[in-house]
Simulated assay, not measured.
Amino acid sequence: MKFFFLVAILFAPSVRAGLGNAELTKSDLSYYHQNFIVFEAYCGYRSKSTSKCAVAITPSRLYVDDNFIPLNSIRKVFVGTNHSGLTGDRFREAATGLKRKRSEVMGLYYKKEDGTLGAAAFAFGRESCKNAFNVTLDFVRNGGIIPATDVRLNGPCGLTDDTSFDLETNYK
Rank of each mutant, 00 (worst) to 15 (best):
K101D: 11
K101H: 08
K101C: 08
K101I: 13
K101A: 12
K101S: 11
R102I: 04
R102T: 09
R102M: 11
S103C: 14
S103F: 08
E104S: 15
E104C: 14
V105Q: 12
V105R: 06
V105M: 11
M106Q: 12
M106T: 07
G107T: 06
G107Q: 09
G107N: 07
G107D: 06
G107P: 04
G107I: 07
L108M: 14
L108Q: 02
Y109E: 15
Y109V: 07
Y110D: 05
Y110A: 08
Y110K: 03
K111A: 07
K111Q: 13
K111P: 01
K112E: 07
K112P: 01
E113V: 04
E113K: 09
E113Y: 05
D114V: 00
G115I: 04
G115F: 00
G115L: 05
G115E: 02
G115Y: 05
T116Q: 07
T116C: 01
T116W: 01
T116P: 01
L117G: 00
L117K: 07
L117M: 13
L117P: 00
L117F: 03
L117V: 13
G118L: 04
G118F: 06
G118Y: 07
A119D: 15
A119M: 14
A119Y: 10
A119L: 11
A119R: 10
A120L: 09
A120H: 09
A120D: 10
A121W: 05
A121K: 03
F122C: 07
F122Q: 06
F122K: 06
A123M: 04
A123P: 03
A123Y: 01
A123G: 15
F124S: 04
F124V: 03
F124P: 01
F124Y: 11
G125I: 06
G125L: 14
G125S: 15
G125Y: 08
G125Q: 13
G125K: 10
G125N: 14
G125P: 08
R126T: 15
R126I: 03
E127H: 12
E127K: 14
E127G: 10
E127D: 14
E127N: 12
S128A: 10
S128M: 13
S128H: 08
S128T: 09
C129E: 08
K130G: 08
K130H: 09
K130N: 03
N131D: 15
N131R: 15
A132P: 01
A132V: 03
A132C: 03
A132K: 08
F133Y: 07
F133H: 02
F133S: 01
F133A: 00
N134P: 00
N134S: 12
V135T: 13
V135K: 06
V135L: 11
V135P: 00
V135G: 00
T136A: 02
T136E: 01
T136Y: 00
T136S: 04
T136Q: 06
T136V: 10
T136N: 08
L137A: 02
L137S: 01
L137G: 00
D138M: 04
D138C: 08
D138K: 13
D138L: 09
F139G: 02
F139S: 02
F139E: 02
